[in-house]
């Protein structure tokens, strides 16, 4: 499974990446310290290299998580079926939760630090989604 982690905090990336590997060592994880770099990778990727799961930090310099989501708009259709986007933030600010309403293609919001249970839920969702996609003939 291909996973992107986008976060300007390398400490947070270290933690998130290792927590994911603890659950599944076969994961293909790519990490980005800014949204701009992640976007470059996404626009450059073909169907197969689009990640199935994306973890996105909100509080980043220059382009924050919201800016990144806005910039994704041209890829929205391509991403919708393939990719589950999760906001991974340390923020407990309720305004962030409320703002999520404007981005329906975001699958969910996880408060840092990411826990084993969170990862279990994400993986099982991915499996059921894959199944339903098969059923739908994709």
């Amino acid at each position: 499974m291909k996973i992107f982690i986008i976060d300007d905090d390398h400490l947070s990336i270290f933690l998130s990446k290792n927590m994911l590997i603890m659950e599944d060592a076969t994961l293909d994880i790519k990490t980005f310290l800014s949204g701009a770099k992640a976007l470059d990778a996404l626009f450059a990727s073909d169907e197969d290299s689009i990640p199935e799961v994306m973890f996105l930090d909100l509080n980043m310099p220059i382009m924050d998580g919201w800016g990144f989501l806005d910039a994704l708009a041209p890829l929205k259709c391509r991403l919708r079926e393939r990719c589950s986007i999760y906001i991974l933030t340390s923020s407990l600010d309720t305004s962030d939760t409320a703002r999520l309403q404007d981005y329906p293609f975001v699958t969910g919001l996880i408060h840092k630090p990411i826990k084993s249970e969170d990862i279990d839920i994400i993986f099982s969702f991915q499996k059921s989604k894959a199944k339903s996609l098969v059923l739908l003939g994709f």
């Binding site: 947070s12 933690l15 509080n59 933030t89 340390s90 923020s91 600010d93 840092k112 630090p113």
Partner: peptide, 20 residues
């Protein structure tokens, strides 16, 4: 904002790392 992002970010990291 400062508390929710900048103060909690290192705390969240610390919690996660301690768990790891």
């Amino acid at each position: 904002y400062l508390v929710s992002h900048n103060l909690r970010a290192p705390v969240a990291n610390a919690m996660g790392l301690a768990n790891l």
